[in-house]
Design a protein around this nucleic acid. Structure first.
Length: 271
DNA sequence: ATGGTCGGGTGCCGA
């Protein structure tokens, strides 16, 4: 059975409801993981999204900032809200699909929103960067808690790091820009290795090819400048490596009306 | 080399 799963930093779910509808209408994903919902749980547009076929909705939101949510057409058996953040931000949610999900039964999906880290890539003078590094350290340590190392697992989200040279428009220009600094990329690699994760996007799209999921709002013509970064990721556990059938970066969504600065990444798994 | 634009919730902060 094919399972389609999307991850999208939506930058306010209430404001973007029209383009969430458009994306769902055009691509019909079974599961949608959202980040930066910027919405308290009691104000999440649950009824609107349920009406689109997502009967199973789990949110971990807070007022004004951050926030993650999982929309699922398949039944969810259990939920976990991560303790990855020393500031108590809503930056993680994990769901495990239930028996009634058929061949997808037992699949665990982690949805992460890693701190952006501010402007100055020095943890001594920038606490936001220190927090980002600490958050990554907590993600790395999590397999010891038995959360990330489980089999039949997918980890998606806005990880706010572009690890490869081809994940940014200019490797040289971005070496000292938060999101592509060597210290972050090294931490990113440690998290991946600790959980034995596979980078599903790069398994499908060769590392020689430029690949971006985010284009700044500050560019007057984002498409012409094309100064993007791959900040959003889809990882799968080793046992699911062969199940990854397709990855699509929905670049056109950056050009939709009132867009997010991130675009959806859509993964198809054959389970 | 610099500054550029968003969103949320207030009189800026975070991205």
């Amino acid at each position: 059975m094919p399972l389609t799963l999307a991850t999208w930093n939506i930058n306010s779910v209430r404001l973007r409801l029209p383009i969430v509808r458009r994306f769902i209408g055009e691509y019909q994903p079974d599961i949608v993981c959202l980040q930066e919902t910027k919405c308290p749980d009691d104000q999440f547009p649950t009824a609107d999204l349920r009406a689109l076929g997502y009967e199973h909705i789990v949110v971990n939101g807070q007022k004004g900032y951050h926030g993650v949510a999982v929309l699922s057409r398949l039944p969810i058996a259990s939920v976990e809200r991560g303790l990855f953040c020393r500031h108590g931000h809503s930056r993680h949610l994990a769901v495990t699909l239930g028996e009634a999900a058929g061949s997808a039964s037992g699949l665990t999906i982690h949805n992460f929103y890693v701190p952006a880290g501010g402007d100055e890539p020095d943890p001594e003078i920038n606490d936001k960067f220190a927090h980002k590094l600490h958050f990554l350290d907590c993600m790395e340590a999590a397999p010891g808690n038995g959360t990330l190392r489980s089999q039949r697992a997918v980890l998606v989200g806005d990880l706010n790091i572009a690890p490869l040279e081809t994940d940014v428009w200019s490797h040289k220009a971005l070496l000292s820009v938060v999101s592509h600094t060597p210290v972050e990329v090294e931490r990113f690699g440690r998290v991946m290795r600790a959980g034995a994760w596979i980078d599903a996007m790069r398994q499908c799209i060769p590392a020689e090819q430029k690949l971006y999921t985010w284009w700044s709002y500050r560019s007057p013509d984002w498409a012409a400048a094309d100064k993007g970064r791959r900040l959003d990721h889809v990882w799968v556990s080793q046992d699911l490596g062969a199940a990854v059938d397709d990855i699509r970066v929905i670049k056109e969504a950056r050009g939709w009306d009132r867009p997010s600065d991130h675009v959806p990444v859509l993964a198809t798994l054959q389970l």
